[in-house]
Design a protein around this nucleic acid. Structure first.
Lengths: 357, 357
DNA sequence: AGCCATAATGAAACCCATTTCACATTTAGA
DNA sequence: TCTAAATGTGAAATGGGTTTCATTATGGCT
């Protein structure tokens, strides 16, 4: 059953397609009777305009491509839900593009991420999306692949591109990011105020800018407080629960152990919590733990996680609003940062022992 | 800068657009020199065919609409990632359509879900998607809105629709679902084998079919084992951590308390864990808890959750494969079920006291 | 009564690819 | 050598809308 088109409506209403189009879009006055006749027919046949045809001439699709690394990482759904909220209000639909690869056994592989980002970029352009949001992945390396940078710049010439929580130094790509350094400062400052002096850091990837920035925040606060930073208490390379557990276990088995651990995300913090539990160390009495991201799961743990909220939803919202402006050709700041907030819950407490007052 | 079209290529290569199209799609033999000339030009101008135009004639878009209730509920990303895996392999792109409403304060509101499902259904048809996947929401009520049913059937006449984990009795809509009754049986059977006799159930919504089916599973196993079902130990209406905590707290404060709780999802189980912890009841020694869904967070808790895996990724994969067949016009079973599996972790143990052997 | 702005509408071009049909040219096989 | 099949290619139609331009009808105003 061939769908009903404007031509069908036009024929039966004894008008031209132009007139049908006019009532459809309200772009010009149409005589009341004529309009009513047309509207009636549209209802009768449940007419739905073909968005492809419309977009083809209008040169706008109302479609956005949203590229992210891994939808099963709970941070991203948060961002996405903020984005969804604004995007819908603004009349956009979006393609979800996950750049992680999964093998038949459902294991997640991050190795081909760049390839996937690249593929999606060109696929989305073919689909004529009005704009592209790209979160993380290789975009967040301190020394990003020059080919990727070039490609992104090339794409950005043709369609608005917005980088989320990413960082491509020395380029003219628009970005919306959480202020990572500030977030880390918030966390560490909190620990110091509680009297902690022996603070360890776990997680992140040394080569990623977000990790570097948080580390910078950590160092700057420590320095300001006159506290030493021990290299062996900074354990990077990883973002998972398993890694958190592994690193925390290592720290806790050392002969001198930290009284507080700052984790690069909440998953790591959950892992640290498990390690402490296994080691018979109680949190927060004997060990304070601060997470990062404030994913919903941060409140599921016992005790609930003290963490830094990246305002993930806010980032998503900001992204949608900004991209919309870019699409409309309005000017937007090249870089926008969203300020994190510290959420104090149950995994941090006054340091006791010699360090506390 | 106007994008390059087949016409541009054709002109510069001194051929007709038909020929360009032929090398683009490999639909007919083209002389080697001609082909090379065209390919070279395509590279030179970074030609990308306009998918809108292509879809308009081909009458297929390679686009699917994926409607779900709430992407921040960790069950859905799991399903989605399975779906993503297969869909990509099959060459589809998909729109993510979240039917939850969020207000400015980021609170999630489920009240307008039906309205949203309906809106998305027609939006997706306008966008000319090749197929639609719809998870849950109002679709899962035992007595679903007849208007919704009618609408879905109407949509399904025009474009393949696949219901996931939903249930619309007495209709000819294709479905892929987890076998809810079987899943519940698995969980309860496990508890009974551990010697539990006093088993409570929390969560779900009495009006939803999935809840009813699981309850049926629970009852059937209890009956088979000759165990009584206490009405006051079945606490429905809710799926969140908070509800789990509330219900479990209520159960645990009663003068006779259950030795095991079967939760309608993992979030509830996490809440139950928290309630037990608050009440000073140790899990699994004094209380066994079984969850449902096996979301990733099930392993984040201490102790890790024993739960029923719905094979969420598998459901997603199945959905993609099935929808693809439907799109291709192949015959598929009206109803497919995916068998849940029991994942025994740390929240269940032998019942002690008078009931254990 | 005469003129102009606005209302109301249609014809046709356009967006960008695919596809059918027709025709010319080779190539292969008898 | 001749015919049938396969190669190679272009003109034009198609898909389903939007938009420009032109034209006629209508109402308001002097």
């Amino acid at each position: 059953m061939r769908p009903v088109t404007v031509y069908d409506i036009a024929r039966e209403a004894n008008v031209s397609v132009a007139t049908v189009s006019r009532v459809l879009n309200n772009t010009a006055p149409v005589k009341k009777e004529t309009r009513e006749r047309i509207v009636a027919l549209m209802h009768k046949y449940q007419f739905q305009p073909n968005a492809l045809a419309r977009s083809l001439t209008r040169k706008e699709t109302g479609m956005i491509g949203f590229i992210l690394p891994d939808i099963t990482n709970p941070f991203f759904p948060e961002v996405l839900s903020g984005f969804d909220y604004e995007a819908r209000k603004l009349g956009y639909t979006y393609f979800l593009c996950d750049t992680i690869s999964t093998n038949e056994e459902n294991e997640r592989l991050y190795d081909r991420q760049y390839e996937r980002e690249s593929q999606y970029l060109s696929l989305l352009m073919e689909k004529q999306v009005d704009g592209i949001v790209l979160i993380g992945g290789r975009v967040d390396l301190a020394k990003p692949d020059p080919a990727l940078t070039r490609e992104l710049e090339e794409v950005a010439k043709r369609v608005p591109v917005l980088l989320l929580n990413g960082n491509l130094p020395k380029t003219k790509l628009n970005r919306v990011s959480a202020d990572q350094k500030f977030g880390a400062e918030l966390a560490v400052q909190h620990l110091i105020e509680l009297g902690h002096r022996d603070i360890a850091v776990i997680g992140g990837y040394a080569k990623m800018t977000n990790t570097q920035q948080r580390l910078a925040g950590f160092r700057s606060v420590m320095k300001e407080a006159g506290l030493p930073v021990r290299k062996e208490w900074i354990l990077t390379e990883g973002f998972s629960v398993a890694k958190g557990q592994e690193y925390a276990a290592r720290l806790l088995s050392g002969k001198r152990r930290p009284t507080a651990i700052f984790c690069m995300n909440d998953l790591l913090a959950i892992g640290a919590l498990k390690a402490a539990h296994r080691a018979g160390i109680s949190v927060p009495e004997e060990l304070s733990i601060v997470g990062y991201d404030d994913i919903p799961q941060a409140t599921y743990s016992i005790p609930e996680l003290t963490t830094v909220s990246l305002m993930s939803q806010e980032i998503g919202r900001q992204a949608a609003k900004t991209l919309d402006k870019m699409i409309a050709g309005k000017k937007v700041p090249l870089f926008q940062s969203v300020m994190p907030e510290l959420i104090v819950r149950e995994t941090t407490a006054q340091a006791n022992g010699k360090d506390s007052q």
